[in-house]
Design a protein around this nucleic acid. Structure first.
Length: 494
DNA sequence: ATGTTAATAT
DNA sequence: GATATTAACA
């Protein structure tokens, strides 16, 4: 007997879950608790049913993830029209999800696999909500499977074992209803750390099995690792882009007194690439009258923002961060000589990595004489400038580079007039004089834009001279994703 | 049997 | 929409 004698019998429970197996197991367990159970594999149908047959249900248990209707949506609808306690249920126990459930009015949140002990007590939700409850009406519960056929169901726990696809439910299966589906592996940062460790030991070309063996995490299958490795590699690809292609290198040279302005030079790329196309850095500048930015630019910015958000999601950041450290190690492992840090040895870095690099610089871990800055999206000139002013670096080189494939948004910058004072590169990006900025700009963003060039078209070295004193430019936008996106929030129309 | 990639589920 | 899982294929 699953319940004691004085247990409130007969609670009418509606269970909604798209997974028929879950449904059956839940049903069985609920029957064991002497509840009357109605199952439904489809949220919309469940909703229809609940509405049409009001007063025939006391409680709803709904899955969160369902193809036809989000469990939260169902929860919302029920809360709106019916006054039923709803229990959410999901394999995902993420705090934010649970919170979402509670804030949307769920009275409980069950984590899959659901244990029968948890189900025994759910009647209390009904009592709590209604104040009292009469458990002795003789409404029969029904099953409504996805074929819209109504099937009478007895409150004993047999007879319901053949249904869709003849799913056989043995008692053994019920027993491991506790492990209702093996728990999904959640790649916590801790777990991921171990993963990255293993990969670093083995090299990036390693295989899932060896990683698994090194990690020594009980219950972690080869498939789990393979899957994660797949994601990891994809991430790396996005991060490093076209590492093999040769890139132009932009370098910034402070003026004599280090106070105002300097020169930016673009040199042709260092390493010879095997692939055909070449990517050059472009410098797009827009300034003060941001509210007068033309449509195309705004659209491009919005797109860029979306891209940034995509690329630097919470989980992704961890990954990028780890890779960033790798890059740093690689970058500085070989010593601090000028040759080592000159263009050919440069790693491409994202702005996140740039942050890391700057951290190291400020902690004195990185060489100061010739500090190499590299950024995927934007280069923070204010840092360069302050470093120069501090006299710490005589020669700061910035390698601008491009991820590939870069979102089309950036290409817009070369095609669209930029702001109310359009400052467009002349044809090719290889020659763009920042002195064309008149004194009216007070902000500037340097944006590398993709510009495909034939090998022979690699830009000739050109000098970009910063006007003195910096054409009135008083601040530069820091490229960190957060800053950048809040900057965009400011200038983009809601 | 194992690794990779693509599709599918949550 | 991101992630983990599964299926399919090499």
């Amino acid at each position: 007997m699953a319940v004691s004698e004085d247990f409130p019998v007969g609670l009418r429970v509606m269970v909604v879950d798209d997974d028929p197996v879950c449904l059956l197991i839940l049903q069985r367990m609920l029957h064991q608790c002497r509840y009357r159970v109605t199952t439904c594999s489809c949220a919309t149908q469940a909703y229809t049913m609940l509405r049409e047959r009001q007063d025939t249900f006391d409680l709803v248990i709904s899955d969160v993830y369902m193809p036809d209707m989000d469990g939260f949506r169902l929860l919302e609808l029920i809360g709106l029209e019916l006054d039923l306690p709803v229990i959410m249920m999901s394999a995902n126990g993420e705090t934010s999800l649970v919170m979402k459930g509670i804030t949307h009015g769920a009275c409980d949140y069950l984590l899959k696999p659901v244990r029968i002990e948890e189900l025994r007590n759910i009647w209390q939700h009904v009592v709590r909500k209604k104040g009292t409850f009469d458990f002795n009406r003789d409404n029969c519960s029904i099953d409504w499977d996805s074929n819209k056929t109504l099937v009478e169901v007895q409150s004993e726990d047999h007879g319901s074992r053949k249904r869709k696809g003849n799913i056989e439910l043995s008692d053994a299966m019920i027993e491991d209803a506790n492990s209702l589906k093996k728990a999904r592996v959640v790649w916590s940062s801790e777990l991921h750390k171990k993963f990255v460790n293993a990969v670093n030991q083995l090299g990036i070309d390693t295989v899932p099995k060896s990683i698994m063996e090194i990690m020594r995490i009980q219950g972690l299958t080869r498939e789990n690792v393979a899957s994660h490795l797949q994601k990891y590699r994809l991430g790396l690809k996005r991060l490093c882009g076209i590492r093999v292609e040769r890139l132009p290198v932009a370098s910034f040279q402070a003026s004599e007194n280090g106070q105002c302005g300097g020169k930016m030079q673009i040199q042709s790329g260092g390493s010879v690439s095997a692939s055909g196309s070449n990517v050059s850095s472009n410098v797009g500048v827009f300034g003060r009258s941001l509210n007068q930015l033309d449509r195309g630019t705004l659209a491009a910015l919005a797109q860029l923002q979306a891209t940034q958000q995509r690329q630097f999601g919470v989980n992704e950041a961890q990954q990028l961060g780890d890779s960033g450290k790798l890059c740093l190690e690689h970058l500085f492992a070989g010593g601090t000589s000028q040759e080592e840090t000159s263009s050919s040895g440069l790693q491409r870095m994202s702005s996140l990595e740039l942050d890391l690099l700057m951290q190291q610089v400020h902690q004195g871990m990185a060489p100061r004489q010739q500090q190499v800055l590299a950024s995927g999206d934007l280069v923070d000139l204010s840092i360069v400038k302050s470093e120069v002013e501090a006299g710490g670096c005589e020669n700061m080189a910035m390698q601008s580079h491009q991820r590939d494939p870069m979102p089309n948004s950036l290409q817009h910058f070369t095609e669209q007039p930029l702001g109310s004072h359009p400052v467009e590169p002349e044809g090719d990006v290889s020659a763009f004089d920042l002195s064309r900025l008149d004194g009216s700009f007070d902000e500037a963003i340097l944006l590398p834009s993709p510009c495909r060039l034939a090998d022979s078209d690699c830009p000739e070295p050109g000098i970009f001279t910063f006007p003195d004193p910096c054409a009135g430019i008083s601040s530069f936008i820091h490229p960190s994703p957060h800053d950048f996106s809040s900057f965009l929030d400011e200038i983009l129309p809601p």
